[in-house]
Amino acid sequence: MRRALSSGTTLAAIILVAMYIVYMYSSIDVLTTENATDLLNNAAPLVISATGLTLVIVVGGFDLSLGGVVTLANVILATQTGGTTGSAAVGVLLALLAGVVVGALNGFLVAYLNVQSIAATLGTFIMCSGLALVIMPSPGGSVPEFISPGLISSVGPVPVSLLVILACVVAYLAFRRTRMGIHIFAVGLDESAAIQSGIKAAAVKFRVYLAAGLLYAVAGVMLSALTASGDPNGSAVFMVLVFAAVAIGGAKFGGGRGSAIGSILGAGVLAVLQKMLFAVGVSTFYTGIFQGAILIVAVLIGMISLRLGETRPRAVTTDQRALTGRPA
C-alpha cells in the first residue's frame, strides 16, 4: 500500500479519477462525445510535451526550451500559406526539424560541454522565442486545414487526439523496454555510477534532449490544431502547465525517478481542472491563480509521496542540488 501510494503514477491516477468525478457532478453534459473530445484535444499537446520533459527530468536535467520549440512549431505552421495538404506536410516537417535542431543544441551543450541544463535551455528558449518573432512578428495567420481542424476531429468514432495520446503511452512503454529506457534512469540517479557500470552517459543525455526537442515540436503541431492560428508569445502558460503535469506525475526533479505515464495522467488532471473551473463558473481572470497554486501543491504532493516511498535516506548529490534550485 505504502509503495503503491508512493508511486507518482498511482497518485496521479487517483487525483485524476477524483477530479473527474467532481467534474461529472459539476456539470450535466460531461459525458457527451463533444465534451470528451474537447477534453482530449486540450490534453494532447500537454501529454506530448510532458512525455518529452519527463525524459529530461529523469535523466537529471531540466528543459526550458520546451516553450520555445512549441512556439516555433506553432508559428512555422501558421505561416504556411499554401493551405493544401502538401504545404501542411512541409510545415510539419519544418516544425519537427526545428525541434530536432533545438534538441540537438541543448543536448550538445548539456551533455558534451557540461553546461547547467537550466542555463543552456534558457538560452535556447530565448533564441527560439526570438526566431518565432522573426517568423511571425504578431499573432495571427492560420494553420493549414489538414492540421486544424484535421487533428482535432475524429477518425470514425475515435478522436485523433485520443490516438495521439495512446501513441504516446505505447511509445513510452516500448521505450522503457529498450536499453536507453533503462540507461536514462541510471544516468539520472548517479552519473558516475552509471559510467562505472559501462553506460555512455553523455550519449544518453544527448539523445534524451534530442528526443525531447522532437516531442515538443509534435506538441506544437497539436497545439496549433487547437488554436488554429499562430502566436509568437503564446507559450508561457502552456510551459507552466507542462511543468505542473510532470510534477503531479511524480517525476523527481533531480533525476532518477519518474514515469511518462504519471506525467500523462498529470496532464489529464490539469485538462480536467480547466474544464471543471469553467463548469463551476470560476472567472477566467482567476484561472492563473488556480494553475499557479496547483503547480506548487503538485510539487509538494510529489515530494511527500516520494518521502513516503523512500525507505532509506539518500545523500543529496550535487546533481540533485543543481536541479532543485540549481547550484552546487
Binding site: I182, A186, L189, A193, A194, S197, I199, K200, G256
Partner: peptide
C-alpha cells in the same frame, strides 16, 4: 550500483540482454 534499478538490471548493464532493439 544503481539503487533505482533491479539486481538483474545492475548485473547486466549496459547491454541488458542480447536484443537489438528491446532489452
Amino acid at each position: 550500483l544503481l539503487g533505482n534499478l533491479t539486481v538483474a538490471e545492475n548485473l547486466s548493464l549496459p547491454r541488458l540482454g542480447s536484443g537489438r532493439l528491446f532489452v
